[in-house]
């Protein structure tokens, strides 16, 4: 009986610790310290603070904003969240999927002149997998959902 009770107590304690840690991570507001990338709006709102620090900026590639150097080494485009946009200067070869309207996360620094300089350009695609000819058209509002700007504003 004593052994039985000990086993029950150990099980319950382990479950309580498990549930407690998960609850804390889910609802404890740790997300605020865990921002993987900034939106253009957040970056602009932070003003001078963001200049010079190594950060990540996320958003969609603004249609019509892509400029490439003839030599192919420099790439310029705007990252937008639908409200604000930030001009990005990338000195890197972009992934093959890089295109207008696709989600990107760029790692780098904000310059005083408002340009964001990056050497690490990552494509963040959405959860849609379509055969050629299928799938939705370029709808920035719909595509913006994949950037999760609302979810992370907790």
């Amino acid at each position: 009986m004593n052994e039985r009770r000990r086993r029950v107590i150990v099980t319950l304690i382990a479950l309580a610790v498990s549930a407690g840690v998960l609850g804390y991570l889910a609802f404890g507001g740790i997300g605020e310290n865990l921002v993987y990338y900034w939106s253009p709006t957040e970056l602009k709102a932070s003003g001078e603070q963001a200049v010079g620090a190594s950060i990540r900026l996320g958003g969609l590639v603004q249609p019509g904003s892509i400029e490439r150097d003839p030599d192919g080494l420099k790439l310029r485009f705007s990252v937008t969240d639908g409200v604000e946009s930030v001009r990005v200067a990338a000195e890197t070869v972009p992934p093959a999927m890089f295109r207008e309207g696709i989600g990107v996360v760029v790692e780098g620094t904000l310059r005083t002149d408002g340009w964001f300089e990056t050497h690490r350009l990552m494509v963040k695609h959405d959860n849609e997998y379509a055969a050629p000819g299928e799938g939705q058209e370029l709808d920035m509002k719909e595509l913006m959902k994949s950037m999760q700007f609302d979810e992370s504003d907790a």
């Binding site: 249609p63 019509g64 892509i66 400029e67 093959a96 999927m97 890089f98 207008e100 696709i102």
Partner: peptide
Amino acid sequence: MSEMAMPEGVI
């Protein structure tokens, strides 16, 4: 969309 000669974003 854009009139620039863009890669089509396909692997």
